[in-house]
């Protein structure tokens, strides 16, 4: 269960990362590594499909805060969809929803991105 995987899809300059597994520090660093590489290549819009990430910890989520901070420097945007209720609640408690967006579905996210 601790195995974490990310697959990447680029659609019209929008980077969609599909995560799978426990979002801990290693998972967070995997996501941030991909985001930072794409930011350095000029991408500024990122969406995470977290349907297959049912368990997170605050260290992994705090790395998403680092990504938000990096995206603020380039006027970028981060969003998430298909969150498990507890992941959604964790994001709310940690304040991520003030600086990034949660969507119920991919369609809803794409309409706003």
């Amino acid at each position: 269960m601790s195995q974490f995987n990310v697959s990447i899809q680029v659609e019209n300059d929008l980077v969609i990362l599909t995560t799978e597994g426990y979002l801990n520090n290693e998972g967070g660093e995997m996501i941030s590594g991909i985001c930072y590489e794409n930011i350095s290549n000029g991408k500024t819009r990122f969406l995470l499909d977290m349907a297959q990430t049912k368990v997170v910890n605050s260290i992994g989520v705090s790395i998403l805060i680092e990504i938000i901070e990096k995206l603020q420097e380039v006027d970028g945007k981060l969003g998430y969809y298909n969150l498990a209720p507890i992941v959604d609640k964790t994001f709310k408690i940690m304040g991520l929803t003030k600086y990034s967006s949660v969507y119920a579905t991919k369609e809803e996210a794409l309409a706003d991105f």
Binding site: S58, S62, I63, E66, I68, Q72, I93, Y99
Partner: peptide, 10 residues
């Protein structure tokens, strides 16, 4: 955000 404060500690 935008400060040197560590992002962890939640």
């Amino acid at each position: 955000l935008g400060t040197d404060e560590r992002k962890r500690g939640w």
